[in-house]
Write a protein that binds this DNA or RNA. Structure first.
Lengths: 342, 342
DNA sequence: CCGGCGCTGTCAACCGATTGCCTCGCCGCC
DNA sequence: GGCGGCGAGGCAATCGGTTGACAGCGCCGG
């Protein structure tokens, strides 16, 4: 039976108009304002009346119209979450963490994607702002001025990027990267390559700076392998350059690039980790599936999303200033790194 | 000035109140209704006046307040997308496809997760309905009655599940599954196991029914390996049962279960595909990363999401009845299947 | 010379909920 | 007995934008 055929037919047009406080008021025989108070100022109204109103509201299937409330109060109980690319697994846990916090706090999450274009990002935030109480942007591509400008309209929080004067939540990349360098040093590696990400990304520059500083301090040599392709797994095309550089281990900007590099190595017959040890960043879904499984740095993205959303809601509610927790990263050793045969 | 102090500080409270049509009207010297008409009924107003109004609106940074419009017109220009589990990669492409269509049509996407609980799913749809023009639910967990009930309030579309009387978009699993059976038969397999998913899932029963019908027709023997664990990768614990059953190939409910099974095989030293050929379903991210890479069935989830959203928007706009495209699935042969040594 | 028409723009009601202010009735206390 | 106080509920304005009804005006034809 081929029952997969899509059903286009449907009884349309028969939708109920949705009950309002006026309907409830009429049923109970009170004024709409009394209904409003009964429903959200417990105690303001006589207990018995309140009870009758609640029952009537229940019976009518009354739901508050968020638009109407928003119009008057200016609070929409919605927050926007903007990522540059939905299909990038780096964002999954962030989205989930943020969604949980928002939902628990009674906020509805509006979700949007900027398709990796800063102009779309700007326009999208602008478009969304009237509908939401605040915006959480993950790894924003905008200038600091643009962010500051958007911040004048509604609260905005940035995740995975440090922006002066704007609340942001960023895991501490240093702890994990230092652990990675220690790990590689213990394995006998002296010459490291950093497989760089998009040069405009704050996180990319940040990671490189940390690596540079600590590698030098540890007496290791390090070199940045610049990207020649802006797509995330553009790492694959750079294998030749890496081999030519003489490094024995690579720290990649992120797991996607590391995974791309491993694939390339497989194709070219380069042994990983025998010839080249590889460390990723983020521990995304898939990092432990690939063979060899990827040694990488866990940046607890779920917590980043949750913390960023908490930070945003704290601003929206205007209550206490939210103090972001320390979010250390840590190395997860798997199969893609091994000791250098000395 | 020169407030370069660290992140926590931020000039709060200094947010602009956002321009309204009243502000624009005052600047131009016309009435608010004229501004409204100028902005969204081109031609209704004198061209020069309209021009002046547009300029003033631009200068003031005027943005329409969607809440205000929604209150009167009943159209919010938002649609909700509900999935059961954000971290399930099956949904990524669906979300992306749906987001693109919604954004292109000028709709804002509200995103929510039901945490795999049908009660949360129901409550979430109910909560979201007043704010949106329609709801797209992916792989709904609800009864048909519940879905019908929700459908009375606002348009609803279901993806990845067939529901009588409710518009739905489902890829045709039959084409891909038949190809998989053909593929396995060519490789010499005569005895197949279906590694079943959650028994309550429509898609699970659907796939099993299709497999049963066609395997029998092809003269192959087939057996359903029931789940003993509701989590997606619960497949890992079932290896013993599979081996005991004597089948030489497994078709899994989805890639997650197939990947779990492969991991288990690795741990237990069972050769894949030498001892057991494995076919997944969905071709999610990661299916080609694992080793051996997974033979699976591509169900073009991006198109499913796009089609489902188009279907929803067609209902919302009340324009033409949307005719969902045929969405065939097809087999992708990789390394996890091989011929049976006869 | 007058009626009527088309073009522009204004008026005012309305969507649903919230909230400051007011009223009414009742109680208790001096 | 008079008055203050308080509990309970109503009135009406308000948020921002939309829209049907209508008014002023210039112009045309009869």
């Amino acid at each position: 039976m081929s029952d997969d055929s899509p059903a286009a037919v449907h009884r349309v047009g028969s939708r109920k108009p949705a009950a309002t406080i006026y309907d409830v008021a009429e049923v109970v025989g009170v004024s709409p304002s009394t209904v409003s108070r009964a429903l959200n100022k417990p105690g303001r109204i006589n207990a018995k009346t309140e009870e009758r109103i609640r029952n009537a509201a229940e019976a009518l299937g009354y739901r508050l119209n968020p638009m109407a409330r928003a119009l008057l109060t200016g609070k929409t109980a919605m927050v926007a979450l903007l990522v540059s690319d939905i299909t990038n697994p780096v964002f999954y846990d962030i989205v989930r963490g943020a969604e949980n916090v928002a939902t628990d706090a009674g906020y509805t999450l509006v979700f949007a994607e900027s398709h990796r274009r800063s102009d779309i990002e700007f326009a999208t935030v602008e478009r969304l702002q009237p509908s939401v109480d605040g915006v959480l942007v993950v790894a924003s591509l905008l200038d600091e001025e643009q962010i500051a400008q958007l911040s004048e309209t509604k609260p905005i929080v940035i995740a995975l990027r440090r922006v002066d004067g704007i609340p942001h939540v960023v895991p501490n990349s240093e702890t994990g990267l230092v652990q990675a360098l220690d790990h590689l040093q213990e394995l006998g590696h002296r010459s490291i390559g950093y497989l760089s990400g998009p040069t405009t990304f704050w996180a990319n520059r940040n990671r490189w700076n940390i690596l540079l500083e600590h590698a030098v301090a540890k007496g290791m040599s390090i070199v940045e392998i610049p990207p020649d392709d802006p797509v995330p797994n553009g790492g694959a095309t750079r294998l030749r350059r890496i081999l030519a550089s003489g490094v024995t281990a690579i720290v990649a900007y992120n797991d996607l690039m590391a995974i791309g590099l491993i694939s390339e190595c497989k194709q070219e017959g380069v042994d990983v980790p025998g010839r080249l040890s590889i460390v990723g960043f983020d521990d995304v879904y898939g990092a432990n599936l690939i063979s060899p499984s990827l040694t990488t740095i866990d940046s607890s993205l779920g917590k980043v999303g949750a913390a960023a959303m908490s930070c945003l809601l704290a601003q929206v509610d205007g209550t206490t200033a939210y103090e972001p927790p320390e979010l250390p990263t840590r190395l997860i050793v798997r199969e893609s790194t091994t000791s250098l045969p000395s």
